[in-house]
């Protein structure tokens, strides 16, 4: 016919989980671990900051997980909280175990746009994971000023404390806030929004990642501080199921978030997020 496009047959099915060996398990908090995966056969394209992979536990299932670290040898890190059957299986993995991964998928934080500018990064809870590689890249001296605001439930729920020390040593202004703490806690108590509202200075560009409610609140605070809404970026999550824009389940308005997200511009989603049940 009549074929409107020339179909391609053969090659690796895009749904195939590629086997990876778990080579390190670092416990971050009581229910969060960071796994380092090493490819056993095919090497995935290195994830850009903000991209995610579909992680597969043999016999259990598959979930989307943001990549929280990459190296040149095809290894990458995943930071996972145990909440459901698959994430529990992933968190329970031990060095030597095999997990599947396919991807990376989705959009990335616009790192290049952050060069020579004042950059604000706001992360809530596990939302620091997809920002970790972004901060690593930015911390190398790209932006003029880099402020990182980290929100967590309690002090022992704060992720990547060693990285935070390293970022501080690079001159990054890291501010941590928790919902509640003892008086021994030397950071702030309150929301990430409070910290952003206290900054007292506009940043040129903001990357915000965390629970949706936290992102909307923090994004508004950043905008109130003077950041242009078109320069605020958030990372949104819906039911990412196939990862390749075929299954239709991660739609948010006109966005297929596995393809057009997870990282999206605030001004393109603010109205969608206001509409209940989108």
């Amino acid at each position: 016919m009549a074929a409107l496009v020339e179909p391609v047959v053969g090659g690796i099915d895009p749904l195939t989980p590629v086997p990876h060996r778990v080579v390190a398990v670092d416990r971050e908090t009581s229910d969060v671990v960071t796994l380092t995966l090493d490819p056993l056969s095919e090497v995935l394209v290195p994830a850009l900051p903000g991209q995610f992979v579909m992680v597969w536990a043999f016999g259990v299932g598959e979930i989307p997980v943001s990549v929280s670290g990459v190296d040149d040898a095809g290894r990458f890190a995943l930071t996972v909280r145990a909440v459901g059957p698959v994430s529990n299986a992933v968190v329970a993995a031990r060095p030597g175990d095999t997990l599947g991964a396919r991807g990376p998928y989705g959009t990335a934080w616009p790192i290049a746009d952050a060069k020579d500018r004042d950059v604000l990064v706001v992360a809530g809870g596990l939302g620091l994971a997809p920002l970790r590689t972004a901060i690593d890249e930015l911390g190398g001296g790209g932006p003029r000023r880099l402020t990182v605001v980290v929100g967590a439930r309690e002090p022992d729920q704060v992720l990547f404390t060693a990285d935070q020390r390293r970022w501080r040593d690079l001159g990054v202004d890291v501010q941590i806030t928790v919902d509640a703490a003892s008086w021994r806690w030397d950071g702030a108590v309150g929301t990430a929004t409070d910290v952003v509202a206290r900054l007292g200075a506009a940043h040129d560009i903001a990357f915000v990642c965390g629970p949706e409610l936290m992102m909307t609140s923090a994004a508004r605070a950043a905008i109130a501080q003077g950041t242009d809404p078109a320069n605020v970026w958030v990372s949104l999550e819906r039911n990412m199921h196939c990862g390749i824009a075929h299954c239709g389940r991660c739609q948010l308005g006109a966005l297929l978030l596995c393809r057009d997200g997870a990282v999206v511009r605030w001004d393109r989603v603010v109205e969608l997020l206001r509409e209940r049940g989108r």
């Binding site: 016919m1 179909p7 099915d13």
Partner: peptide, 17 residues
């Protein structure tokens, strides 16, 4: 798509209409 659906591609190939 960036990653074509392999099953669909196989079924769609050379369709006579």
């Amino acid at each position: 798509a960036d990653r074509p659906d392999a099953q669909y591609a196989g079924r769609r190939r050379d369709t006579f209409v």
